[in-house]
Computed example of a mutant assay.
Amino acid sequence: MTTTTLITVAPTGAESVKSEVPALPVTLDELVRTATECAALGAAVIHVHVRDDDAEPTLDLGRLRATVEALRAGTGLIVELSTGGAVTDSETDRLAVLDAVPDMASCTMGTVNFGDDVFLNRWEFIVELHTRMQDRGVVAEYEIFDLGQLAALQRLLGRYGLPAGGHVHVDLVMGVPGGMPGTVDALVACRQALRDLPAGTTYSATGVGRTSVPVMLAALSGGGHLRVGMADTLSYAKGRPVESNMQLVARAVSLAQLAQRPPATAAQARELLGLAA
């Protein structure tokens, strides 16, 4: 059982609309301010999606590079870029995300129904993304939307080797309509499957929407880490909209402390994930 909790904040995502969610950070200034506030509370990693001048999701490389540079200059957070983007983004654009040279990047381990859409991740694309990250020294976080994707990860690592840094870390994304539910039983099933991965593999868990709190509690009790943020959750409680990402990070920190697993510092997080100091 790990003694600290790695807390990741995912502040924006690609699904919510700024006009409907005014608190959503979409400009670079808003994102850096959010990152600074969340780091002060105990977050160690920021999972980044960027928006354009119209607050629409974009994988524009110039914006990605500027975002990575600003977050590094203004915070001590580990900067993780999403290679998922929006469901409409091309594979070429998603691979080019790595050209922004983040500390980490996501690697989703399979295709999944995503609400009314399809989040497409072909095997050949996954392999290309994994090997490019190895070559460039970008640490991978393997996003798992369903149980079978852990078997796909075992296959990937067996054929193409460990990620950059040598440590395997997965994020269980739970509660997406079309993916696995955000339940204790689903998390336990994933923990069983994680035993087939290399020794020392760690996991974070993300509960989408109303599954956020049950997933956090289950993850903490099972030795897991946490991802929270407005990318995944817009309601703090029934009938109570989220006011800021700080609110969600503060709750995660409080639960981690209650579990006697306080938030990992940035240095502890880097050591855990196999990142250079």
Rank of each mutant, 00 (worst) to 15 (best):
L147N: 00
G158S: 04
F145T: 05
E141W: 04
H167C: 14
L156A: 10
G166Q: 09
L162F: 03
R159A: 11
V168R: 08
H167R: 13
V173N: 08
F145R: 00
F145I: 04
M174N: 14
D135R: 15
V176W: 00
G175H: 10
L162M: 15
P177R: 01
V184W: 08
M180Y: 13
L157H: 06
V139K: 11
P181H: 15
R159V: 10
D185I: 07
G158D: 06
Q149L: 00
L147C: 05
A152L: 07
C190P: 15
I144L: 01
L150Q: 04
D185G: 07
M180V: 14
G165V: 03
R159G: 09
M174I: 09
P163A: 03
T183W: 02
G182E: 11
A189H: 10
Q154S: 13
A164V: 00
G158F: 05
G148D: 07
G166M: 08
R159W: 15
V139D: 00
V188C: 11
L187H: 13
A164L: 03
V138W: 04
A151M: 01
L157I: 15
Y160F: 13
L187Y: 11
T183Y: 09
M174R: 08
A140Y: 12
L172T: 11
G158I: 01
Q154I: 03
F145M: 02
L153H: 00
V176F: 04
P177S: 01
L162W: 11
L153Y: 02
P181G: 14
G179C: 10
L162T: 08
P177E: 02
Y160I: 06
L156N: 01
A189I: 05
L172G: 08
L157Y: 05
V188M: 12
Y160L: 07
L150P: 05
L156H: 07
A186P: 07
P177W: 00
F145A: 03
G166R: 11
V138Q: 08
Y160E: 09
G166H: 12
G179Y: 09
V184I: 13
G182D: 05
A164Y: 09
Q134W: 14
Y160T: 07
V138K: 08
Y142K: 03
D171R: 08
G182P: 06
G148L: 04
L150M: 08
A140D: 07
I144F: 02
V168K: 11
D146Q: 08
L187G: 11
G178V: 01
